[in-house]
């Protein structure tokens, strides 16, 4: 356990860079969410924050707390792992929802990929 004021300089620089990088990616994701024209295009930018953004913050928190406590503090990794499990579920369901609603509204989206015959067969 060392004092907050005696952190080595390289740790501080590394943590600062990682945090800034992550917030830049989060901001880019928000800009993309705002600027894209079509709903399916808008589904892509949020992935920036949930992958590289989350990885950078987790790495920063691991490095910072491991130096602070003079031992490995690894619980930061749980956030990216949790995100990589939950985010696909939400995106998948949202994509399906949007396809379903757009088809109902008669908008220009691809037709269902499974043909009628296989549907009744299975």
């Amino acid at each position: 356990m060392i004092n907050v004021s005696e952190l080595p300089l390289w740790v501080e620089v590394l943590v600062a860079i990682l945090l800034l990088l992550s917030s830049l990616f989060a901001l880019l994701g928000a800009i993309g969410l705002l600027r894209m024209k079509d709903f399916f295009q808008r589904m892509h930018p949020p992935a920036l924050a949930s992958t590289l953004g989350a990885w950078c913050v987790a790495l920063a928190s691991i490095i910072y707390f491991s130096t602070l406590k003079s031992g490995p503090v690894l619980h930061g990794w749980l956030i990216p792992i949790l995100l990589s499990i939950t985010v696909p579920v939400t995106t998948l369901l949202l994509a399906r929802t949007s396809l379903f609603r757009k088809r109902m509204a008669g908008e220009d989206v691809p037709a269902e990929v499974s043909s009628r015959r296989t549907e009744s067969g299975s």
Binding site: M43, P45, A47, E112, S122
Partner: peptide, 18 residues
């Protein structure tokens, strides 16, 4: 489906029933 949804730039939209 996890890999495609986690990777930015691809979204898994639908899988045929078969």
């Amino acid at each position: 489906s996890m890999i495609t949804s986690v990777t930015p730039g691809t979204v898994w939209s639908e899988l045929a029933l078969d």
